[in-house]
Simulated assay, not measured.
Amino acid sequence: MKTIKKANSCKNIADYKVNRSLIKEHRPKAGDVAIFEVMEIGSLKSIQDYKGRNCYIFEGDHIMLAFGNRYASNQFEAYVPKGYQEEYDLVGKGGVAGNVTSMYYKLEDIGPTKIKLIGYAVNKNGVINTIYHHRKAVSFNPFKRRSFKTILSIGSSMDSGKTTTAAYLCRGLKNGNHKVAYIKLTGTIFNKDKMLCFDCGADYVSDFSELGFPSTYLCSMNTLMNIYESLLRDVEAVNPDYLVIEVADGLYQRETSALLEHSPFTETIDHVILSCGDSLAVHTGEQLLQEVFDQRLFALGGLFTGSPLMVSEVEQKSSIPVLTLEKLVEPDLLNGLLKGPKVEIAV
């Protein structure tokens, strides 16, 4: 067999054999590891490999991926296939395979990169699955008291600027001599977001993929909260002053919406910053979040802050401070906005 280019989603997969006989009889599930041949290059011309570097792929290459679902309104909607197919799609650059069922209009002409299933990665226990492959699952503890304050970075939609907001927020907190951690709770595996936060000064960064999840789309609430507990325990070992938590996509996305309706999660949040793409989205997002978090929504940010006109529109309609990127890194301003006692969890 050719050299196999191992994707980031499979970075913890070491001892395995390739079983070609299972390709038609095994029904894949999220996290199952398989080897594919690249058949036709589409929108994704590279994968993030197991070292986190950008690895270009070419027709004929063999790549190791994990099956997974994906929700990305500006990219793909994709699902784990229900059975064997002649062809599959590369749906995530971090190394996710599935079936694309819809895509952003700008991708329609080129479409997804097409791949062919060569075989499953197996060990003595059968087909290898990345989820909790190298770590044990832990149950969420709603009564646990954490020493650090939490800041939720949430967006009105995908590409509303919430990751950049989270990263610059990390930098502003570091400028104030605080120890800062960052986690991404939901999304599809890709190192870009957490590494931006690391480069902005976060002392510790992690996300759901460290537990083996290629994505969190269609995960149950119980699964999401157990992921959350695992990440929180890792953060506890670092003992930060602040933890910045990012959730993927927008307020209406399945997992984000469910988390906002789940009090065991919302009651762990001390502060919230909302990122929006335009001024009208601020109005809707503010209404939704104030119903859940009330005074904990302390600031607004995101793409709209790049337009002085939209900032002016928002400031005329909202009493919540607008933080441009320049303001997010001002430690005195942040300290003033974040002052107050830590929220106690009462479940």
Rank of each mutant, 00 (worst) to 15 (best):
R145G: 04
L224F: 05
K114H: 13
D49H: 02
S279D: 09
Q290V: 07
G52S: 09
V311I: 14
G301F: 01
G111N: 08
H26G: 03
S147P: 00
P341G: 06
I115M: 03
I320A: 09
R171I: 01
C276H: 03
F76I: 09
S160E: 01
T266C: 08
L243H: 07
L243V: 09
I189E: 04
F67M: 10
V311R: 15
V329P: 03
A30K: 07
K317F: 13
P308E: 07
R254H: 15
K339L: 08
I154A: 04
L44S: 12
R145Q: 14
S263W: 02
P214H: 10
N222A: 05
R70Q: 14
D199I: 05
G201V: 02
N222K: 13
V314C: 07
D15N: 02
Q290G: 07
R27Q: 13
E210H: 14
G172E: 00
R146E: 04
P112G: 08
C276G: 05
K24G: 09
S257R: 10
A97D: 00
A7S: 15
M158P: 02
K45H: 00
C55D: 01
F293S: 08
G83R: 11
E286W: 05
K45D: 02
I115S: 04
I269H: 04
G83I: 02
P308M: 12
G176D: 01
L274H: 08
K114R: 15
K106M: 09
L90Y: 03
Y16G: 01
S157D: 03
G94W: 02
D32N: 15
Q316L: 12
I35L: 10
P331F: 01
R70D: 06
K11D: 06
L224W: 03
C200G: 00
I345T: 06
C10D: 03
L333P: 01
